[in-house]
């Protein structure tokens, strides 16, 4: 186990390294200079060159990358003399646009995205897995058919269609919910909740559809397993056959998928944040790409990769805990 984790962590560091290089290369493959984007039409060649110099963009790519890595590992000092600004490790630099440290931007946006994603995850697992399991147990019933129908609609619906409709109804027409946004739950839990309710409901409901279909299929397959028949043959009551024997086996792949989904979603609930106008990691990342805001792009991309890699490791470890046949190594 310890050896496995060490190997996985080394591999993760390597992956992050690769992601950072690829992002850097992709960034500089764009023909437009960030300085041009920042400065706009009124800038002449001289002004642009000055801006480029100020941002360090006039250095060769590999030098810039080296400086970036040095900042990550040891911290970095920008400017010289009285104007010098210290950026302690892990230094991701400053936003080209606002000069805000990228680490601050991340600290500000991560709780937003985590709130949205975790809230939705709770809804989609409780609602989706619950519906799917009940559907499987009541296969062929009216309940089952309704659930299958609803989840088919849900699974083929998109957030950017469903989200605005809900916004229109609950915020602009009925005025029962405030405009979505983010307030720290430590400052005002009530507002945190009501402002995020709509994003949660939208994302949670749509993802429930997928989870319901998945759980139903998984449970049906498990119910036809020999060990479920054995449990019945022992004389166990239905409740125990389902809960202890069938559910336990059916839930394992769902835990895996939920874990991987979580990792992916934390990297930026881009569409949800955009639709509801909430400034989380996803929206920030998209904006940074549009602005050619290199430090922010690097920061958000690396963080997204980090979430995905960490959740992958957690899921693998969890799997070995749930299923005794799985050996890590």
């Amino acid at each position: 186990m310890a050896r496995y984790l060490i190997r996985r962590i080394l591999l993760a560091v390597l992956t992050m390294f690769a992601v950072s290089i690829v992002t850097f290369l992709l960034f500089f493959a764009v023909p437009t200079s960030p300085a041009y984007v920042m400065c706009g039409k009124q800038c002449d060649a001289h002004a642009i060159a000055q801006t480029e110099h100020r941002l360090g963009l006039d250095e060769p790519t590999y030098v810039q990358y080296g400086q970036f890595m040095k900042g990550m590992v040891a911290g970095r000092t920008y400017g010289t003399g009285d104007l010098a600004v210290k950026c302690p490790a892990p230094c991701l630099g400053f936003s080209f646009r606002t000069n805000e440290p990228v680490t601050d931007i991340i600290k500000r946006t991560v709780p937003v995205t985590v709130s949205i994603v975790v809230g939705a995850l709770v809804i989609q697992t409780v609602l989706g897995v619950g519906l799917g399991m009940i559907s499987a147990l009541k296969r062929g019933s009216v309940f089952d058919k309704t659930a299958v129908g609803v989840s088919l609609v849900g699974a083929s619906m998109q957030i950017y269609f469903f989200g605005p409709i809900l916004l229109l109804i609950f915020v602009y027409s009925l005025h029962v919910l405030p405009n979505p946004g983010y307030t720290s739950p430590f400052d005002n839990p009530g507002q945190w909740f009501t402002q995020l309710l709509l994003p949660w409901a939208t994302l949670g409901f749509l993802n429930s559809a997928i989870y319901a279909r998945l759980s139903r299929a998984q449970m049906l397959e498990t119910l036809s397993e020999d060990f479920v028949r054995t449990a019945r043959a022992k004389g166990l009551p239905k409740r125990k056959v389902y809960a202890r024997h069938a559910l336990r086996a059916a839930i394992t792949p769902i835990v895996t998928i939920a874990g991987l989904d979580l990792g992916g979603a934390l990297g930026g609930a881009v569409i949800t944040e955009t639709v509801f106008g909430v400034n989380g990691l996803g929206r920030t990342a998209v904006q940074a790409v549009n602005d050619l805001n290199l430090p922010v792009v690097m920061g958000t991309v690396l963080l997204a990769a980090f979430f995905i890699i960490v959740m992958n490791i957690i899921v693998d470890v969890l799997y070995s805990v749930i299923d005794p046949r799985v050996r890590l190594g």
Binding site: D226, F227, T230, P237, K238, H245, R248
Partner: peptide, 25 residues
């Protein structure tokens, strides 16, 4: 419910393939 109470004692069964008939977890 009545059959269930008989299973395991009034009649019990050894299944064909014990690897799949035993719960893996």
């Amino acid at each position: 419910e009545k059959v269930r109470r008989m299973r395991g004692r009034d009649m019990a069964m050894i299944f064909q393939d014990p690897l799949s008939a035993l719960h893996p977890y």
